[in-house]
Design a protein around this nucleic acid. Structure first.
Lengths: 144, 144
DNA sequence: ACTTTAAACAGGAATCATTCTTAATTATGA
DNA sequence: TCATAATTAAGAATGATTCCTGTTTAAAGT
């Protein structure tokens, strides 16, 4: 159950790639490339930011990582690869998974109503995480 | 029914701003800032791209335009300001409105299941528009 | 209409996330 | 072990967007 990661994929197993995948799978939230870079750098001090970007891309092309576009400037990466939805805190930018069943029927509903051949959809929720809801009282500034 | 645009808003009515708003309201699809720039330039040849960006931002802050993040690099702008969902063609990047009723209940559903105070959500559909579905046979390249 | 003045403007520089280039290193498989 | 194709570090390049500066303009009073 541990390393089903590279299983059955023609993907070269390099040092950086392995560490990136290990580390992203330890995290429940969905870091940016730069956040992953800082984490990976602790184990591979000579790793470069470009390598982290490239490997996150390769991993997502191979379905081992999800690449998420939320309402901030950077991409976020998710080690959980089954289809699911996400939420982002509008204050601190933290991005996490949502325990909501997939709405599989809306793609066909939309396809029936439009001229598009619908392939997939994304749902993103935005709100305040617990920490930021509490901080709200203190009136600190926004990040996202 | 025509110019409810500036109604009741403390927003200065400048040449560029007026033209941008008029033009975006003529369009059903959701152009990027640069596409708007090219359109506006036909009426105001000396307009600058920065002005178009700034005004689209101001207009969206005042709720006169929606700013959309889809799965390409650029922001898209929507003259229709009531809540609704969007679809983007994965091939040509065209972005349009979806005739699907708002799923108002999912915010509370998510709030009940998470530690977040949910404020809003977005749903984006991706697929192939009619033109690109047809072109598919001819095997032309992807843009988005 | 004329004046004032804060906001908006054009043009171009700056920023920031991401991608690309290149020469050196490394994983894979014969 | 060797060949070689992929990967890497470092930094340059790119592209969307924002910011800066000196000039212009819209809004609100005279």
């Amino acid at each position: 159950m541990k390393n089903l990661l590279y299983t059955g994929k023609k993907i070269k197993k390099t040092r950086a790639r392995t560490v990136i995948l290990e580390e992203i799978n330890k995290i429940k939230s969905h870091p940016t490339a730069y956040e992953m870079f800082k984490i990976v750098k602790q184990r591979l001090p000579r790793v470069s930011l470009g390598t982290v970007y490239r490997n996150l891309d390769i991993l997502s092309e191979h379905g081992l990582v999800l690449k998420l576009k939320m309402n901030d400037a950077q991409m976020h990466y998710d080690g959980r690869t089954d289809e699911h939805y996400h939420i982002q805190c509008v204050k601190c930018g933290k991005t996490e998974d949502i325990p909501l069943e997939m709405l599989n029927n809306i793609d066909t509903a939309v396809q029936d109503k439009t001229a598009y051949r619908v392939l997939y959809h994304t749902i993103s929720f935005y709100g305040l995480c617990t920490e930021c809801t509490e901080e709200d009282v203190t009136g600190k500034g926004n990040k996202v």
